[in-house]
């Protein structure tokens, strides 16, 4: 990025200092650094990995865009390109690798399989999309995506980073006060088990042992209806409440600049939605505790 682009126009720099200093916001500076030094993890799953290598090779060369070098260890990587079919057997190490990546970290689902199971979705050992377990930032369609498509996806991720703000802990979890929880690593039992479902499975097993009608998929619609009802109630309650930390928002958001107003609006909405999600989680926990 050129100095002129980094400079924010609402803070004019005296003419004699032009091209020597820039006045900018902390977020913008952070993002500028991060977007231009995204090191992907050297991590190939299937066919898409071959196209990923082709993208890294001389003809396409993603180093040109700041994805400088691929690192084999997750500890040095910023970006996980999930390049191929995610199987149940492999999702366990993938989640573990994700947990080992330092924050800020991003996930790019490359190709149909990583985005939603792809042609192999119906397979018994295939996870239908990486987003069942990890938060995915960018999806690149294709089977496999051409190197051009992958490059486009990576540039889209850079644009996404441009919009992030260090003042908003809900927007980007790693700027929050508390450290982020590691994603629970799935377990291979009779089939793959998401640890977040452990309670449900245990209750199901107990019910089966006591020869009670099993609480399985059949009961779920009722349960989802219950949760959905409480969610709407929460959302209205949250929307009515005044915004909590409006001052923090004003810290980075320049006032008076017309293009930013829209972004602020979007960010505010996103924040409210995140708060609603949090409240929803709390009620769900409460419901679960009550049931026990």
């Amino acid at each position: 990025m050129k100095l002129q682009e980094l400079n924010q126009s609402e803070y004019p720099v005296p003419a004699e200092l032009e091209n020597n200093i820039a006045i900018t916001s902390l977020s913008q500076l952070y993002n500028w650094g991060r977007r231009n030094s995204m090191w992907p993890m050297l991590f190939g799953l299937a066919c898409c990995a071959i196209e990923m290598i082709a993208t890294a090779a001389s003809r396409f060369d993603f180093s040109r865009f700041g994805f400088e070098v691929m690192r084999a260890t997750p500890r040095q990587a910023d970006l996980m390109i999930v390049s191929g079919t995610v199987t149940k057997k492999m999702v366990v190490p993938i989640v573990r690798l994700y947990n080992q990546m330092p924050e800020p970290k991003y996930v790019l689902a490359m190709g149909a399989c990583a985005s939603g199971g792809g042609p192999f979705k119906e397979g018994y050992n295939v996870v239908s999309g990486m987003d069942k377990y990890l938060p995915v930032d960018v999806y690149v369609p294709g089977c496999p995506p051409t190197p051009q498509a992958l490059l486009y996806g990576m540039i889209a991720l850079q644009r996404k980073i441009d919009g992030q703000s260090i003042a908003n802990g809900d927007d980007v979890p790693w700027y929050g006060v508390s450290s982020a929880e590691p994603t629970p690593v799935p377990v291979l039992g009779p089939d793959i088990i998401d640890p977040r479902q452990m309670d449900m499975i245990r209750r199901q097993a107990e019910a089966a042992a006591a020869e009670l009608p099993s609480i399985g998929a059949r009961d779920l619609p009722a349960a989802t209806a219950l949760v959905a009802a409480s969610a709407t109630a929460d959302a209205t309650a949250v929307a009515d409440a005044p915004p909590v930390d409006g001052d923090a928002l004003n810290f980075v958001l320049p006032t008076g600049a017309a293009p930013w107003a829209e972004a602020e609006d979007i960010r505010e909405k996103r924040r409210l939605r995140a708060l609603a999600r949090k409240a929803l989680r709390a009620t769900r926990r409460a419901v679960a505790a009550e049931e026990e």
Binding site: S128, V187, G189, P190, D191, Q197, I201, Q204, A205, A209
Partner: peptide, 25 residues
Amino acid sequence: AEEKNVFGKNVTYPPDIDLGRLMDT
């Protein structure tokens, strides 16, 4: 497919499932 099979699985877990052992890493 998920709409028809909410858990995405077709197994019934046996009553004596030892989750502790599975979690042993």
